[in-house]
Amino acid sequence: MKMDWILALAGGMIIGLSVSIMLLFNGRVTGISGIVNGLLSPKKDDSTWRITFVLGLFSGGLLLRIIRPQAFNFALTTPLWTTVAAGLLVGVGTIMGSGCTSGHGVCGISRLSPRSIIATITFIFAGIISVYLFRKFGVI
């Protein structure tokens, strides 16, 4: 259990490093929902870096299969429709709320952006209530 915390902290710092590289070189916030959404209504000369970013995530995933295969443990017993519904809610919610865990939770809070602080408190709060209710009613 203690090892989990150390890995979580180390992994978090690696995430902090990656978003810092994006800021230093490209001057941008690493908000993953925004990066993906930019591909859905593309503007001129604004797509390639988004595609290479997603390819980077995917390549990192391939690397993880070798160095840390237990990272991909999807031992979910929930029915598949819950994953469909979850994806739809996350898609709508992150675009309506202008960000997700990366853009608001990491980049925004680090800048002390009031919007991101409110957004992060809101989605964690909503998540806690939802897990409680979903468990109570046997959905998850």
Partner: peptide, 15 residues
């Protein structure tokens, strides 16, 4: 911002 983040939180918990 608040409604969207709330919806995101529900989906995050569900999936």
């Amino acid at each position: 911002l608040i409604i969207g983040s709330f919806i995101f939180g529900i989906g995050w918990a569900l999936g």
